[in-house]
Amino acid sequence: MDTKKIKHRGRFSQVFIYLGKLFRMFIFQNDWKVFPMAAVIAGLVCYVVGANLFVTQEGTMIGTFALACICIWNGFFNSIQVICRERPIVKREHRSGMHISSYITAHMIYQAFLCIGQTVITLIVCRITKVNIPTQGLITNIALLDIGITLFLITYCADMMALMVSAMVHMTTTAMTIMPFLLIFQLVFSGAFFPLGNGAAKFTDLTISKWGLTALCSQGDYNSKPMVTLWNAVAKLQNTEFNGQKPVAEFMRQAQESGLKEYILAWSGKQNQNPVYAFSADNVLGCWGYLLLFIFIYASIAVICLEFIDRDKR
């Protein structure tokens, strides 16, 4: 046969072959379970931290951190095993003419579908649990959509990181061993909760959690929120007696009645301004940019790693 004149499916056409396979797996396999799982996790987190999310600075910080963690958790679980569990099949298909870039692109599209679904579910759960969603959008003028895009990018970025790991390792057990380390790295190096030295602080720039959390804090207008730490610290002293009286308790009662409390909380908040969380479109776009860059890097590494699949030992 004259093979020189015969053409086979190109990269673009092959994407649809694998997309079809993945969506069939979604129905026949258990991939659909990621949606109810996302609802349960979001429900738990909103129940615990939802009341003060986007209400106070502390609540916003804790809440956005928890939201970012939900997204990272969802993203990791979506794809941590998807490639390594069928690695020998991928090797066989690569031998038969499959393009790795098509295979990864199909996964990227499919995972985007899962991540969008999980983001929508998370937002619905936030609504149901009456989380105080910001009203002013910075990019699209629809705050919910802005928050949704951020949550999607965090989830998708974590998903791509897990996809990269799945493409690098050979066994599902290895992938599941690595995953907790990645998760802990994301939590510890988010740059929000744990005080880090100058050297270690540089690592926060490499985490999805940092950019996701920063975008969410910016969108929630962190700097305009009242700060309750000072008031709570004073409240701890309200039972202190002085000459048979409780002056701190009395001061707090009067402050609450006169509206001074709100002033104190707002004043505390003003003293705790963090330019990193500035309520600006540039700030949010910058964070999105980093997340998109990470997505591109992770997907590229996944393709490069899988291109060497022929070297897998028998």
Binding site: R9, G20, F28, E93
Partner: peptide, 18 residues
């Protein structure tokens, strides 16, 4: 988790000339 027909049809799309 794929059907016999789809497995073979996808193999045909991948391996047969476009």
């Amino acid at each position: 988790n794929d059907t016999v027909l789809r497995t073979l049809a996808d193999a045909a799309t991948l391996r047969m000339p476009s």
